[in-house]
Design a protein around this nucleic acid. Structure first.
Lengths: 206, 206
DNA sequence: GGTCTCGGAGTGAACGTTCACTCCGCTATA
DNA sequence: TATAGCGGAGTGAACGTTCACTCCGAGACC
């Protein structure tokens, strides 16, 4: 087994075991066994278990970002762009349940809080298509005038919840239902036409 | 210290420590110390640590249900009822951050999955005002025709996410913003007037 | 009333288990 | 043979749980 192959085997084994049994139910010894290496070998590639967990997250994160941007076009209208990103994200999750479960655990742990703190506080839009979409959309009165954090919550909250429920078997998200769900999310983020009309006709009323 | 007082002290200590450090960062020894009792005493009230965790959850759950139903009136229109429940829930969370953090951890663990499996599979609406609201709302074409699980996701997904972000200090949810957020949730759950009109005029188109 | 007895709640040191991590001998390759 | 990478038994710390013991207040008896 080549060098980098062994590293990948360790990451795969960690993904599988952590997905099945959680961070605390996946001891280094078990990861080593499933990867077909010795326990000590893991420490030749990752200084600590924490670092293994973080690097695994970063690999998955990069993979998803790449997937989301496939076929994404800045020139499309806001709604189209939102639907593209969100359906792609949801579709990725339900076709890669293992990766989803890992990410879910990661975000619901102190690791994830740190990650989000970084992302939110540094206000650059680099590589964050959603942020750009929301900020530009607010300027053009297509997206509600709410803090970006709230818009994120309105979008990712439902998406993560339905993905989880689908994977747990609580609902069967076929393509039609998936699109309906994402459209519903959009309706919570967009400025609805009636509100917009009211604002423009009686600007002082607000 | 009376008998039941001691039990409450243990529950309080567990709530504090688990909120601060997670399930795995709150050893029985530490809970006992904070509660001012011996480690062995805890096992006179709770057979295992798991049972302590589950009973603590049930106490908090009951408390919230009671709070939500204060001033709730079945006769009000759907939107009013939805806003009542959801603003109450969100307000409860941000004024009781410790309880929220505990519930969040609980739901994001195997305990929570079991709980939700029970709640979803038994389709009785007993003590579940949201479920009644959604099912009745769908029949009257006020709420979108989606699986109840998806409607739950559209509602609780954003609410939990913004509550968490408020508590972590990523956003400041004042009363105005809180209501705006809940209204946005409603817009993802309700049937929007244009859709309804379309459906009624061209019923065959769908 | 004073003293003795007893039941059971309370205690915390000790136990067995599990874990992340280390260390040193082994092996494959050149 | 020399070297670099690897393996897995070993290590100490930390955990949930147990159990032999302490302590105290309520009755029983004088």
């Amino acid at each position: 087994m080549a060098n980098s192959e062994k590293r990948q085997e360790i990451l795969n084994a960690a993904l599988e075991l952590i997905t099945e049994h959680g961070f605390h139910g996946a001891p280094i010894a078990a990861i080593a066994q499933r990867a077909g290496v010795g326990a000590g070998t893991i420490y030749r590639y990752f200084a600590t278990k924490d670092i293994l967990i973080i690097e695994l997250f970063q690999e998955l994160h990069d993979k998803i970002c790449e997937y989301l941007m496939e076929g994404y076009e800045e020139e499309q209208p806001f709604r189209t762009r939102f639907l593209h990103l969100s359906t792609a994200l949801l579709r990725y999750f339900i076709t890669n349940p293992q990766e989803f479960r890992y990410l879910e655990q990661y975000f619901n742990s102190p690791y994830g809080v740190e990650f989000r703190r970084d992302k939110i506080l540094k206000s650059e839009g680099d590589g964050m298509p959603y942020r750009v979409l929301f900020e530009e959309g607010m300027r053009q009165q297509v997206v509600r005038d709410l803090p970006v954090v709230v818009l994120f919550a309105l979008t990712f909250g439902p998406l993560l919840a339905v993905a989880r429920d689908h994977i747990l078997g609580f609902v069967d998200l076929d393509e039609r239902l998936l699109v309906q769900t994402v459209e519903a999310c959009w309706d919570s983020v967009k400025v609805c036409p009636m509100e917009l009309a009211k604002k423009n006709v009686y600007p002082a009323a607000e």
